[in-house]
Design a protein around this nucleic acid. Structure first.
Lengths: 205, 205
DNA sequence: TGTACATCAGTGAACGCGCGTTCACTGATGTAC
DNA sequence: TGTACATCAGTGAACGCGCGTTCACTGATGTAC
């Protein structure tokens, strides 16, 4: 049942997307190759025709997920790459709740350290990418301090979203409060003027 | 082979400690009940005499780990609960590298959202505890802003350690740089006076 | 205090199950002539 | 352009393995008298 090159490439992409989404939703250890293949409309044998192992799939799915979420972050920042808009995007309740569209780093922060070397390398690249993007947006901060602030904000955002997810069901108010607080405080770290409390549209419905 | 009540209580503690350490080192999904029991010098049957399920063990081990690490944080803060000293402790390379002694929240930040209700409730309690401890140390910050800053610092610290662990092997310099940057920037968020670059003793050997 | 016995912490074999991976096979694709 | 055939993406059965959990059993502990 050989298929065209185009179809094979589509199948590969479908596997990567299904894998990325499922890993974000249920964790890397929480999803098996059978389920990923099924979600992509294939059998697990097809997966092994495309990737040598689950570890290799994890690494490539991570890279793919990082690319998409970086793109979404740049879109959120607009042409001016405004920090405020990026933080509003990264720390919104919808980014917390929509695992399927979320950033792989927030979904796998603590799992990443236990993965394959290739996976950790991709994670490190993704983190560096986020730091660079944020650094470029810190126009109000003295150049000498931009990098250390960008590093702190990047990791803080990842932590805030991960914790907000962990406490969302047990203490939904605490979860919202953490996102709001992080948005305000990290905004200030990034040189934003003080602003009022968040508008209602960014709050939990 | 019934044992004394004291011995049974000791065994229970041994199971909780072994479980906590292994979960921190290799993830909750990454360790089975057989290995935990063996590490505690028992069989898995004994584990089921003490706990109704692995999930229940996870929840209790998390609570136990949170208690120990809270105690260590308070000791690090000293009698005055100085923020500087707490951040030095939380964001030190040794806290990053010593999983066995580390904080369960930094080790399981992204895994927590996928656990049992009981586990998530314990996680939320642990996070609230960390926030309160930090809040009490923010003596230089106007009272109205203490809580939002404490929330941000708490989550930022968890994120920084999780990311520092993830990138430690692939990019050790980036990992150290992130810890240093977070210590300085979060210190400033907490109202610390600016201080010089970290002393050598806190750097990677 | 001494004896009889019920309790129950701990043992270890066994359970069904899903995991990642392998492999003989299929058959449409892509290529050589 | 038409035909012959090698290639290889995808199928699905099968593999060994470790998982969480159950359960009949053991035998020292704790208790009732």
């Amino acid at each position: 049942v050989r298929v065209t090159k185009e179809k094979a490439a589509e199948n590969r992409t479908a596997l990567l997307r299904a894998a990325g989404r499922l890993f974000r939703e249920r964790g890397i250890d929480g999803v098996g190759v059978a389920e990923i293949s099924k979600a992509a409309g294939l059998t697990h044998g097809a997966l092994y025709a495309q990737f040598p192992s689950k570890d290799a799939l994890v690494a490539e799915a991570l890279a793919e997920g990082l690319r998409s979420s970086r793109k979404r972050l740049l879109e959120a920042g607009g042409e001016e790459s405004r920090l405020t808009d990026m933080l509003d995007f990264l720390l919104s309740p919808s980014h917390r709740d929509d695992l399927a569209m979320g950033c792989p780093m927030t979904a796998s922060a603590s799992e990443a350290a236990r993965q394959d070397e290739a996976v950790r390398a991709r994670f490190a690249d993704g983190f560096e990418g986020l730091v660079s993007t944020l650094e470029a947006a810190l126009t109000e901060v003295p150049p000498a301090e931009r990098r250390e602030r960008a590093l702190t904000i990047a990791a803080a955002q990842i932590g805030a979203v991960a914790v907000a997810r962990a406490v969302a069901k047990a203490q939904p108010r605490l979860s919202d409060e953490l996102l709001d607080a992080s948005r305000r405080v990290l905004g200030a770290v990034g040189g934003e003027r003080a602003r009022g409390r968040r508008p209602a549209r960014n709050r939990r419905a």
